[in-house]
């Protein structure tokens, strides 16, 4: 691990100002950052510990939603009675992620900012445009079983590893931030994570000196909520494919559907075209096929991950059948 100076932030403004400096990094749970620092994938010269900031509450909003502080631990959020009752898809997604020990440390803000688990990003002896811009992408011609099939570029085919963020994407969450001037903004989660394009090293729409303070959830949409995760072992593994679904149906008709996918792209993926195929349609195989076709338009495998295309199709069928009772 490279040497760094350690500083504790006493105020959110102090933390935001401190992160504007080159080489400075925020540490919250630290479960991903310290892992990467041990491997020298991350080499901050200064760590700003924000664990003492008052960002650890889950509160009701006046609109009937929830405001989740950036430092709320994944385990506490999953167990919150309001989340369990009204946002079951989020509770399930959180519980599907990592292990209990890691969930006890991992925070809401840190979960959104965790880095890809692409093997070549983690291996500093290999080219990686995300870690070292311009060096190339070893995954394109390498072992790419866990990699993306949607929204890829010639520069990067990594995936975003979060389960929590997939559920938040289905729930249309907003990411609240503050910058060093004290200005706040709410970033729709759809715009928070970026696709790789030609700049895979830029992963989010956060600016230097801007930090996450909370995630807000709108009131829960109507419908059945399901989080389905498909992985190589039954527990404690990243998703090959995951689906967060909120589907409202009655009397043989789907009224509305929200579908977010993990394991497919460098951000939690939503397809308005796929959701559109479901609205006002009967919950049957031909409808589910139409939605899967719309979702997978433009999907591309890179060899080892070709299996994800039929896998996401079958997983979507299964989830839609479960949520509609078909």
């Amino acid at each position: 691990m490279k040497a760094f100076t350690y500083q504790r932030a006493n105020t959110t403004a102090h933390a935001a100002a401190a992160t504007a400096k080159p080489g400075a990094k925020i540490i919250a749970g630290g479960t991903n950052l310290l892992d990467l620092m041990k491997l020298q994938v991350e080499t901050p010269s200064q760590l700003i510990d924000i664990n003492h900031l008052p960002l650890d509450k889950v509160e009701e909003t006046s609109e009937g939603g929830l405001r989740i502080g950036a430092l709320v631990r994944n385990s506490d959020l999953a167990a919150d009675p309001r989340v369990r009752q009204r946002y079951g898809v989020l509770s399930r997604a959180l519980l599907a992620g990592a292990s209990a020990q890691l969930r006890n440390k991992a925070t809401t803000g840190g979960n959104l900012l965790q880095r890809t688990r692409c093997y070549y990003f983690y291996d500093i002896t290999k080219p990686c445009n995300k870690r070292s811009p311009g060096s190339g992408c070893a995954a394109l011609e390498g072992f790419n079983r866990i990699h993306a099939i949607l929204g890829t570029s010639e520069q990067c085919i990594a995936t975003h590893p979060s389960d929590m963020a997939v559920a938040m994407r289905a729930l249309d969450a907003n990411v609240e931030t503050v910058d060093r001037q004290g200005d706040t903004r709410a970033i729709p989660i759809a715009e928070f994570h970026r696709l790789p394009g030609n700049t895979p090293e830029i992963e989010t729409s956060l600016k230097p000196g801007e930090i996450i303070t909370a995630v807000t959830l709108p009131p829960p949409p109507p419908g059945v909520q399901v989080y389905r995760k498909v992985r190589d072992r039954a527990s404690y593994a990243f998703a090959l494919v995951s689906v967060a679904a909120i589907v409202d149906s009655a009397r043989g008709r789907i009224r509305s559907a929200r579908l977010a996918f993990g394991g497919l792209a460098l951000k939690p993926w939503r397809s308005p075209q796929a959701e559109q195929q479901l609205v006002d349609a009967a919950p049957d195989t031909s409808t589910f096929n139409a939605a899967a076709n719309a979702l997978l338009e433009g999907a591309r495998g890179f060899g080892d991950n070709d299996f994800k295309i039929p896998l996401v199709r079958r997983t979507l069928h299964s989830v839609l059948a479960e949520t509609t009772g078909a």
């Binding site: 540490i27 479960t31 892992d35 510990d49 664990n51 385990s75 006890n104």
Partner: peptide, 13 residues
């Protein structure tokens, strides 16, 4: 009182 991986957290924290 909570279980954590002691390898992934700094003592100073």
């Amino acid at each position: 009182g909570r279980r954590v991986n002691s390898c992934l957290t700094l003592a100073v924290m």
